[in-house]
Amino acid sequence: MDTNYIRRRYLIAWISDAIKPRRDIVMFWQLFTSGMALGCVYALIALGFVLIYKATEVINFAQGEFMMVGAFVAFSLIHFAHVPFWITVVLTLLIMAAFGVLLDRLVMRFLVGEPAFSLVMFTIGLALFLRSVAGMIWSTDTFAFPSPVSGEAIQLGSVAIAPGDMLVVGATALLVLLLYLFFRFTNLGIALQATSQNQFAAYLMGINVEGMFSVVWALSAMVAAVAGILLAPTLFLHKDMGFIGLKAFPAAVLGGFGSIPGAIVGGLIIGISENLAGGFLLPWVKDIFAYLVLIAVLIVRPEGLFGIHEKKKV
C-alpha cells in the first residue's frame, strides 16, 4: 500500500515533469552543442562501418576498437616518444592505415563470401581480442589524453561551448569534406565507389577489387583513428572506450547503413537526441536512448531513415 502510493506519486511526478514545456532554452542549446560534438564522434565511427560495409559487406563490430587502438597509438607517440601533436596525427594515420591493410591482407581476405553471420562474429572476436591485447599493452588504467586546444569556453550568447567540442565539430566537417572530394574527384575514390556499387562490374572494368578492399580497410581505420584522437581528450582514454562504437551502430542503421551522408546525419541525430533526453527526461535514459530511437524508427521504416528498401526479386 505504502510503496504503491509512493510509486504512483513518483510516476505522476515523472510524467508531468516529462511533458511540462521547458522554457530552459539555455540548457537546451548547451545540451544541443555538446550532443553535436558527441554525435560527430558517432558519425565518424558510423562512417567507418559504412565504408567497409559498402565495399566488402563486412559489418565491422571492431570499429570502436579501431578507434581505441588509434587513440592509444597517438597517446603513446605523444606521451612516450614526445612527438609533437600534429606530427603524431599524421603518424597515427599512417600506422592505422598499415594496420587496416595488414588486417585485410592477412585475414579478412579469406573471409570474402562467408555468410554475414560469420563475418559479424569474426569481427566481434576481433574486437574482444584487440580490447584484451590493448589491456595487456597499455594496462587497464584510464589516461588523460592531452587536448590540442585549450582555453576558456567560448560564449555564444548565454551558451558556453567548450573549445574541445568546437574542434571535434570542425575536424569532422573537414574530414567529411576531404572524403567527399576524395570520392568525387580522385581516380582511387571513383574506383572505390565503383567497387562498392558492383564488385563484379568493377572487376570487369579492370579495377583491382582486392586492392580496393585493402584501401577501404585502411581508410576506415584512419577515420576511426581520427575519431579516437577527437574523442579521447573530451572523454577518457581506456581500453574499453571502443564500447562507444556499439552506439554508432544505431547511427549507421538510422542512416540506412549504406550511405555516407546518412551515417553523418544518423550520428548527429543520435548524439544530440540522447543528450537532450538525458538532460530533459531521465538521466539514465541517455545511455539507451540511441536504441530506443532506433527501434522506434525501424518499426516504422525498416530500411532506416535514408535507406532504400531492398526486396528480393523472385
Binding site: L126, S132, V133, M136
Partner: peptide, 22 residues
Amino acid sequence: QQVGFQGAVYGLIIMLFILFEP
C-alpha cells in the same frame, strides 16, 4: 600473467573457429 589474457584467448578462439571450422 597478463590481465587480458583470458579475453584475448577467447577472441582468438572465435576468430579461429570462423576461419577454419565454421
